[in-house]
């Protein structure tokens, strides 16, 4: 069912006779569209392209007076980063934290979203809003209480501690996006299940959850990306555990920025994320297409 809406509907055949001008416009439209889409792609790519070229330059070339588009690429920065080895620790920590955060956020967020979307109860909208509001507090005010709480409970500098913090940050987005997907499901789904004698939980678990799988994949990727790139809490709540954003920030030093190592690490760390996104990208778009079941 989901596949049906995946095949988008390009340039439909128009049944009316067309004037030559309109015909020309219709013929050019796809190219104009393509031009805009690729222009936007270049806008998205250019800073990353520039970062990537810096990772292949000596610092003296990276800062050159006339920006150098053509240069002799060197791999020293990559070799230095790989040889130093810290990058693998950052990568490992980030992977553990981001995957665990995603799993826990989904496990906690999906039931919440389901109930908020499908069941009327007193305070439903207030509860939903409270969930949303947990993302609103500016972190500056939260840092000290959070830190004290973590030191007291022994969560400081532990994987579970960091995962819990990331879950708290991401839960609202999981709940609200999943809520949207569940709302688009027809209520006949559960009603039919109840007729067959299913319990509330079975209706959720066996009927709605499978249909929502693509949506879950989409939210999973967003939650993964948000956790992967989270900086402030990862910084304050850890000492020894270092995630990628915190680790990479250490290339920005006092009176020196290690451009080569910073850019090479950033490019390296883009690879696993891209692989993750690439594998899930079909689900990603399909996942946001829950209306397919209508």
């Amino acid at each position: 069912m989901a596949e049906m809406t995946m095949t988008s509907s390009p340039d439909r055949v128009n049944l009316r006779p067309l004037s030559p001008a309109t015909r020309l416009a219709r013929a050019l439209a796809p190219w104009a569209r393509r031009l805009i889409l690729w222009a936007f792609a270049i806008w998205c790519l250019f800073p990353i392209y520039w970062l990537a070229t810096m990772s292949l330059k000596r610092q003296v070339d990276a800062m050159a007076r006339t920006p150098r588009f053509w240069f002799q690429p060197i791999w020293d920065n990559y070799l230095a980063v790989i040889k130093a080895g810290d990058i693998w620790n950052y990568f490992g920590s980030s992977l553990i934290v981001a995957l665990a955060t995603t799993a826990v956020a989904l496990a906690l967020g999906i039931p919440t979203a389901y109930v908020l979307a499908r069941y009327r109860f007193r305070g439903n909208s207030d509860f939903g809003f409270w969930i949303l509001s947990t993302r609103m507090t500016p972190p500056v005010a939260m840092l000290i209480p959070f830190f004290v709480l973590y030191v007291r409970t022994g969560l400081m500098d532990t994987y579970p501690g960091l995962v819990i913090a990331h879950v708290a940050i991401n839960l609202s987005i999981v709940v609200w996006l999943m809520k949207g997907f569940f709302e688009d499901l027809p209520s006949e789904l559960e009603e039919a299940a109840f007729m067959d004698g299913a319990t509330y939980f079975q209706a959720f678990r066996q009927i709605c959850l499978p249909v929502a799988l693509p949506g879950i994949a989409a939210v999973a990727i967003l939650s993964f990306l948000f956790s992967w790139n989270e900086f402030l809490f990862s910084l304050v709540l850890t000492n020894e555990i270092r995630t990628v954003p915190v680790g990479l920030y250490s290339f920005v030093g006092y009176q020196q920025v290690r451009w080569g190592e910073l850019s090479a690490s950033a490019v390296l760390m883009l690879v696993p994320v891209l692989a993750f996104v690439f594998i899930f990208q079909k689900q990603l778009v399909r996942g946001l297409t829950m209306g397919a079941t209508k």
Partner: peptide, 25 residues
Amino acid sequence: VKVQTQSESEYIASLPVKLGAKSAT
């Protein structure tokens, strides 16, 4: 000796929090 190195901005952002909370390290 355990050595912990941070960039200047992260250091300035995180150390007051730790010292202010009377952390032993």
